[in-house]
């Protein structure tokens, strides 16, 4: 037997396992194609392949023209973008200090803080909404407490653009804290101590050592939050203003109350477009930041 024959009798294990591996990934890939990719393509086709008065169908972008020229639709998109941006900034401002505290604190209090930060994850949005109304709504707990000491009522954020902002920030705190905390786990104590050893104070440590090391985690956390907030429904529907409204309630109302599926799907495709843009930005940034 020659060496070549011997080699031919012993194929690489990866080659033998390849069909099994492909079969294993085939199921989720087919599900994604069926349940996600196809509905997206189908929705896009439905918004540009519109019925004509003659009973046929033709290529048209009239539904997109309507969205762009309609001041109310534009206002809804604007309020959605505003809410998403404000929530992203507030989440970073609120969650980064919490995550930093949890990562670097040795005290027993840290365990309780972590518990509190994760708690909103177990509270359904509907309960959160009613709690919000009971506390911050008109004649809510805060108003009652202020009234009991003779102070005027607060200007309630309920049914204003700040209502969904407060609710969505609260709802997204657990996931954001957990992602940031996992990123901070990559910053070793010795890297921190080495920076202090060469003279870095608290701000220099945060700016030059910690933030560059967790930039990917910040990006992931904000991406997750933004993608969720952009298409949020329950909290904006219950806590937000009737007009303008965020894209989630807008789509639902256009579809169910106005019986206008074409415009509802157009709104969905536009929402998807913004989300995919942010998704692509996130993927590009993560790939760029990855250490070679």
């Amino acid at each position: 037997m020659t060496a070549t024959e011997a080699g031919a009798l012993a194929p690489a294990p990866t080659q033998r396992k390849r069909p099994i591996g492909l079969l294993l990934v085939a199921v989720p890939v087919l599900l994604v194609l069926w349940l996600i990719i196809w509905p997206i393509i189908s929705a896009m086709i439905q918004t540009i392949w519109l019925p004509t008065p003659e009973g046929g169908r033709s290529l048209s972008v009239s539904s997109y023209e309507f969205f762009i020229n309609d001041p109310y639709s534009r206002a809804n998109l604007s309020i959605t973008l505003w809410t998403t941006a404000v929530c992203a900034v507030l989440l970073l401002v609120v969650c980064l200090p919490i995550a930093l505290y949890l990562r670097f604190s040795d005290s027993k209090l840290a365990a309780y803080v972590q518990g509190l930060a994760i708690f909103p994850m177990f509270v359904p949005s509907i309960i959160l909404s009613f709690a919000f109304i009971r506390v911050l709504g008109p004649n809510g707990t805060v108003d009652l407490l202020l009234n009991s000491v003779g102070l005027p009522k607060i200007k309630s954020p309920y049914l204003t653009p700040w209502g969904p902002v407060i609710g969505l920030v609260w709802d997204n705190i657990p996931l954001t804290v957990l992602i940031l905390l996992s990123g901070l786990g990559n910053v070793s104590n010795q890297a921190i101590e080495a920076a202090r050893d060469v003279g870095a104070g608290r701000f220099a440590l945060l700016w030059h050592i910690i933030l560059p090391r967790v930039s990917n985690s910040i990006l992931v956390a904000i991406s997750f939050a933004v993608l969720g907030i952009f298409s949020a429904f329950t909290l904006p529907y219950i806590l937000g203003p009737a007009a303008p409204e965020m894209m989630g309630p807008f789509m639902q109302r256009t579809f169910r109350d106005l019986f206008d599926p074409t415009n509802a799907i157009t709104q969905a495709v536009i929402t998807f477009g913004f989300c995919i843009l942010f998704g692509l930005f996130y993927v590009r940034s993560v790939a760029k930041n990855r250490t070679p």
Binding site: S188, Q190, A191, E193, A194, I209, R213, T291
Partner: peptide, 8 residues
């Protein structure tokens, strides 16, 4: 430091 602790 033992683990070098360089900033990667």
């Amino acid at each position: 430091f033992q683990s070098h602790a360089l900033w990667t």
